[in-house]
Design a protein around this nucleic acid. Structure first.
Lengths: 336, 336
DNA sequence: GTCATTTTTGAAACCGATTTCAAAAAGTCT
DNA sequence: AGACTTTTTGAAATCGGTTTCAAAAATGAC
């Protein structure tokens, strides 16, 4: 392996000087600088990153904790962050918690071991009290997920408004019996969406029938299962608010199978604006989350925190946008 | 920051002994061992990974190069590999080339910098002559993608057979005019599929009409576009072989829009067996690639190579399986 | 109890970079 | 030319671990 000493010897200089050239420090004569460059090129020298990290106490790596990258939302988030991190000279270490507390804790140890300079949490499996202990080992920020009590920078979407506009849209299409169908009941993201949902119901003086609440909906299969359940209810809902496009797609698939027309007999709204929304027939109305903006800001905030800039309490919130397609609006009915 | 010296001082021992305890070396008396554990616990000590990497010349990290994680095939591959790597005590650094030569080269430098112990390539953007130069810096293996001239371990699917069975299936449904619709023309994966495609045509003494060849199909949108093109041809094909489920879905979506019935007027077969195949109407016939097996073996081979085990020339090939659904077989027609 | 052998322990070197500090070289000004 | 700055350079310390090697302690054999 070629080390800085080899380069120094080849150039007939000390390694201090070579190091200065590598890091573009001043006070190196042009002649010697050229000699060093020549030696580096001849030997094909590249600095050893472990040695650099040890001495600099910086690894130029940021970890991002996501449940799974195959989840389209988190996959896109991770992808956008990687691109952004590269622009700032950082590697992104994508860590999947697989919805497991233990795996999450294992990944949090990366901060203790100083394997990463900072950590971006996009979801939280453990209690906040457990997670916050790791704050003493390095900067952490929240992105997408959030915690009321957390005193760390947070970059999030306005989920309350997202839940609100989606529900309001359903109500304005004439629906009064609206089902609520979502995944993580413990996540604050989900709770805020629910708050927006309730807000809209209140505004129109509607009440929520608890029989219409489903809190275990994550996948397409869950959507199909829930449709079947709804279908055989004595007084079924006429519209469904879902927490993800996949679940919405599942419900529509189920409806199709049972000959229930969407949106006429059952309106369905998704969340995320994934590709699938444009592929299903009918195309799925949804709430778009502008993921790249979130990712960009999260990385920027993280990079600032690593260099001790910025404020612990900063909170950035991005708006969500309702996208009306076919699964909530009958073509013959007037579009709002 | 708590270091090994702090632990040593606290336990009233030398850091050599502490190191021995950490690494579970023999020749440490039980008494001292307990003292060390106690001190580590009290101080909340965790070894610094940069320091370890520097001394051990091992980072316990494996890089995997994928085009994009949002591509369902590569996303699943990366996810499976991550799980597998964790079992062997390795971190997986997922690197997206974004189909760019420069980005790929930038990631290859990780091996030079010794930031990773090895590299798994799932696709190759640069010429092999360029990539192979990096072999001298650390172990590299191919997974999914392959190179005839490469003398490194390879884990792949039998793409020739995959192309063959899919095409044969279409032919046996009575199709004679079959379009070929794929993405990377330079990838060896694609070339092998094509070889299988040709093999099936030959077997049934059919010839290929070059007007039916499309080599720029990656996404759903591409599929829609290609359908439109096919649709206005004077003598259109009656079946389409595609290189991905997304493209197949696009073609079906386009067909639906123009009132062309699938599979009656146009049979479509996908590749990968992604979720979408079960969601489209009609459900998409496809070729399944058992990704987790590939991922598992790739990581195992990589781990062996890092510890200088195994053979450079080893090639592992996994079979592909045809899955017949609705997009190639009319329900009224007999199923083969 | 002595000597040989084995087990346990710690001082010091090492991994490959960066940084400090002081010395050497070069430049400036009487 | 000599005194005083300023720029350039290298020796040595440092980061936090692991490993080598020799010494110390414990054990065993007689």
């Amino acid at each position: 392996m070629v080390t800085i000493d080899d380069v120094a010897k080849r150039a007939g200089l000390s390694k201090s000087t070579v190091s200065r050239v590598i890091n573009d420090y001043p006070h190196v004569s042009i002649k010697k600088k050229e000699k060093v460059f020549e030696a580096m090129k001849e030997l094909g020298y590249v600095p050893n990153s472990s040695a650099r990290s040890l001495r600099n106490k910086k690894t130029q790596m940021i970890a991002v904790l996501v449940p799974r990258i195959m989840n389209p939302f988190f996959g896109q988030l991770a992808e956008s962050m990687e691109i952004q991190a590269a622009k700032h000279g950082y590697q992104l270490l994508i860590c999947q918690t697989m919805y497991s507390k233990e795996t999450e804790l294992k990944h949090l140890e990366l901060l203790k071991m100083r394997q990463v300079d900072g950590m971006i949490l996009t979801s939280i499996e453990n209690e906040w009290d457990v997670v916050k202990e790791y704050l003493s080992y390095g900067p952490m920020i929240l992105c997408n997920e959030f915690e009321e009590e957390a005193t760390i920078p947070t970059v999030k979407f306005d989920q309350i408004h997202g839940g609100y506009v989606a529900t309001k849209h359903l109500i304005r299409q004439g629906h009064k019996k609206i089902a609520y169908c979502t995944g993580g009941q413990k996540s604050n993201v989900g709770q805020h969406r629910r708050r927006g949902f309730n807000l809209a119901l209140q505004e129109y003086h509607l009440s929520f029938d608890e029989r219409y609440g489903f809190y275990d909906a994550f996948s397409i299969e869950d959507g199909i299962r829930i449709f079947k359940h709804i279908h055989q209810m004595p007084d079924p809902p006429t519209a469904v608010f879902t927490g993800s496009d996949e679940v919405a797609a599942g419900i529509i698939t189920g409806a199709k199978e049972y000959g229930v027309s969407v949106p006429e007999a059952l309106a369905v709204i998704g969340f995320d604006n994934q590709v699938i929304t444009k592929l299903m027939d009918p195309k799925i109305s949804t709430v778009e989350q502008p993921i790249p903006f979130l990712a960009k800001r999260a990385v920027e905030v993280m990079v600032d925190r690593i260099s001790h800039k910025g404020n612990d309490q900063e909170v950035y919130e991005y708006p969500l946008e309702l996208i009306i397609r076919e699964s909530t609006v009958s073509p013959i009915r007037a579009v709002e």
